[in-house]
């Protein structure tokens, strides 16, 4: 999905992992995905560069849809749909 489409998404849950280093954002995603239903959208806020590669791979492995990323000043937003 394009950043423009992602910004319009109806997000079901947002976790703010900004300011934490790896593996913080990954663990926050792992915990949060357990609290939403299949088909719902999770957004993870992170300022940790490694997250950009980590979360897409994790999504693929765990059967979730990685939707994309939106850059913001000083952080970024990662979107995924629970599988």
């Amino acid at each position: 999905m394009t950043p423009e489409e992602l910004k319009e998404l109806q997000v079901d849950k947002t976790v703010d992992a900004r300011g934490t280093a790896c593996p913080g954002p990954l663990l926050e995603a792992k915990k949060a995905i357990g609290t939403i239903d299949s088909g719902q959208i999770l957004e993870v806020l992170s300022s940790d560069e490694g997250t950009k590669k980590d979360l897409p791979k994790w999504c693929t492995k765990k059967g979730h849809d990685y939707l994309g990323i939106v850059e913001e000043p000083g952080y970024f937003r990662v979107f995924m749909k629970k599988g």
Binding site: L26, K61, K62
Partner: peptide, 8 residues
Amino acid sequence: LSGAAADD
């Protein structure tokens, strides 16, 4: 260990 946990 955290990575392993995230991976179940």
